[in-house]
């Protein structure tokens, strides 16, 4: 564990907590894409399949449970909780996210580090996570103005993988044989997708107004 990875995990945790805070306290999911949340639930479900078979550390297992629990409960809230569901912007959240799942699965079957069931699904989760934010970014374009909590959520979610890139650079220079092109490229693509959001976020943030 290094400071970059810890900062990345904490940023990721913060993004999930901000979203849960928004949905649970003000009972609103305005501006949040249910489709992105569904993709993230699939990402965690396929990435953490080894949660019971391979124990890394208490921290690792605890964080996996937090991410699994929070992503599925956010989907549940947005789908079935009456008050929250009412604030869901169904007409605008129309990105065909299922069209992202199949290509990621095919790509994982073609490009992976080891051809085993767990490894292919793990690689699938990497590819899917790289594009999972697309429905949210499209929704953002359509709803123009979003509240600060949603803006913070997206900012933290984009930032965590950027910190992971610093973690991979650090581990590449400090650990022999630590080379994982698939993880690195997927992480880079994921972070680059946030580039224009970061641009507007900092513009607004410096301006001191909400994120538009």
């Amino acid at each position: 564990m290094n400071i970059f990875r810890l900062a990345g995990d904490m940023t990721h945790l913060a993004s999930v907590l901000v979203l849960l805070l928004k949905i649970h306290t003000i009972k609103s999911c305005a501006g949040v894409s249910l489709r992105t949340q569904e993709l993230y639930a699939i990402v965690f479900a396929t990435r953490y399949l080894d949660i019971f078979t391979s124990f890394v550390s208490v921290y690792n297992t605890f964080m996996k449970l937090v991410f699994l629990g929070s992503s599925f409960s956010i989907v549940w809230y947005m789908r079935y909780h009456k008050a929250v569901h009412r604030t869901y912007d169904r007409e605008q959240d129309t990105f065909r996210h299922w069209f992202l799942v199949l290509p990621c699965l095919v790509l994982a079957l073609l490009i992976h580090e080891k051809f085993t069931f767990l490894e292919v699904l793990w690689t699938f989760s990497l590819y899917l996570e790289a594009v999972a934010i697309l429905p949210q970014l499209v929704l953002l374009q359509r709803t123009r103005n979003i509240d600060n909590l949603t803006g913070q959520y997206i900012f933290l979610l984009g930032g965590y993988r950027g910190l992971y890139i610093l973690n991979w650079i650090y581990r590449y220079f400090t650990e022999p044989h630590f080379v994982h092109w698939i993880t690195w490229i997927a992480g880079l693509v994921q972070t680059l997708l946030y580039a224009d959001f970061f641009y507007y976020y900092f513009l607004r943030f410096i301006g001191g107004r909400g994120v538009e």
């Binding site: 391979s54 550390s57 580090e113 080891k114 630590f178 993880t183």
Partner: peptide
């Protein structure tokens, strides 16, 4: 163990 190292990340 290298494989394990890769999957020691979230």
């Amino acid at each position: 163990h290298i494989q394990q190292r890769l999957h020691d990340e979230l």
